[in-house]
Design a protein around this nucleic acid. Structure first.
Lengths: 220, 220
DNA sequence: CGCTGAGTTCATCATGTGATGACTTAATGC
DNA sequence: GCATTAAGTCATCACATGATGAACTCAGCG
């Protein structure tokens, strides 16, 4: 898969494809046709889509750009995923790691849970296997209904569930919301708006300062 | 100005315009021409643009939609504001109220400053004269460089400046960032993602729970 | 009055978009 | 081996978009 950055204004400099020996496709005949051997194109397209959506959001990402990033014909994207909407949906699928990691962080009692949550959250965003989906979700949440719904769902189902044993008492759900609020804010500023010095700060420092802020809400 | 919602799929049901008496424009002649009396169209367009951008973000808002919302021909939008980019820039202009309100909230010493900041922030978002610009900024920050820059600028210049006397000591700037982080997160979840019950909670409740979280960072 | 400039509409363009269908080649099941 | 299905390309469509230019009407100034 090509890097998303490479694609930009590409145009047409990359007509020869890997494995297509020069002359293998006789001039005048159709270049189409299934590639020999087993294939991983479907996954490549999804990866490319995730990367593109993560980097520019739903609207600014065209099917053509995704195809280019996956080094594949545009129709193939439609062939596998149908509509752009549906592809986006797939790209949005949050890895199972996420609820697990957050639930694990919530275990171990009330004490220090703020710091553990911040650390787990940062870990998910720094993990290359989870980051694109999260980035896609947050980046498009402001303009795409489905992404916004996914964000809400994540905030309630996943987070509130994980925190069920920890955030108790008056207005427990509201307070869970506020914790989600803090974590999403952190993602926005550190990874999307890239606010300095926050974006460059190392994990431990962020955990040290931000943890107590979450803790304040846990305590009520 | 028409409500943004009315526009949706409008199409062409609204051909007769206010003041254009039937027959006033002889068939076969041009309908163009300046309207009699003084005009406020320029401002109307900007208002419409702000409303549209606030509701759907930069990409999903077309010049045509803005024109429709302002009940004006599309070319007029270009006539007054040139490119879409430039119009967006104008719509993004943050009202002067904002730095003032936040600076005022920061006055009065360290004690209770967390709550005062949250309250001031919510007030700005509930004020119809400031809300559209803020909404536009946050909603498009994820996908538009200029909006993101504006957001950073707001977070540093305005917020950090206001908090200069309050947030002191180690990593003061980083901690100001984290406070901005919390406020932006709140805007995201309450006004954009519309997470319940947070979105429906009344101001005082939010202030009561969220204030101490900001305070935790002020204290360090 | 007549002129200039600003406000206003219409028609149109080039471009990029998502989507479809025809066609080609390889894998797979019988 | 032979039919069926899956993977792949190309050409093309209908449409929405941002932008421009020409034409027209009013305001304001001399």
């Amino acid at each position: 898969m090509k890097s998303v950055d490479d694609v930009r204004e590409a145009g047409g400099a990359d007509r020869e494809r890997a494995g297509a020996v020069a002359g293998a496709v006789p001039a005048g005949k159709h270049a189409g046709g299934r590639r020999p051997g087993e294939t991983r194109t479907r996954e490549a397209i999804l990866d490319a889509a995730r990367a593109c959506f993560a980097e520019r959001g739903f609207d600014a990402t065209s099917m053509r750009r995704i195809a280019e990033a996956a080094e594949v014909d545009q129709s193939l994207v439609h062939h596998f995923y149908g509509t752009k909407e549906n592809l986006f949906l797939q790209a949005l699928e949050v890895p199972l790691k996420m609820p697990q990691a957050l639930a694990a962080a919530a275990e171990g009692g009330r004490e220090g849970v703020g710091e553990r949550m911040v650390r787990a959250h940062l870990a998910l965003w720094d993990d290359l296997s989870t980051r694109p989906a999260l980035m896609t979700m947050v980046r498009s949440a402001s303009v795409h209904r489905v992404a916004a719904a996914r964000l809400r769902e994540t905030a309630t189902t996943i987070l509130a569930d994980a925190l069920g044993n920890v955030v108790t008492g008056e207005d427990a759900v509201l307070r869970s919301n506020l914790i989600a609020t803090q974590l999403i804010g952190l993602a926005m500023m550190r990874y999307i708006a890239v606010l300095e010095p926050l974006a460059a700060a190392d994990t431990d420092t962020v955990v040290r300062y931000y943890g107590p802020a979450l803790q304040a809400i846990v305590e009520g």
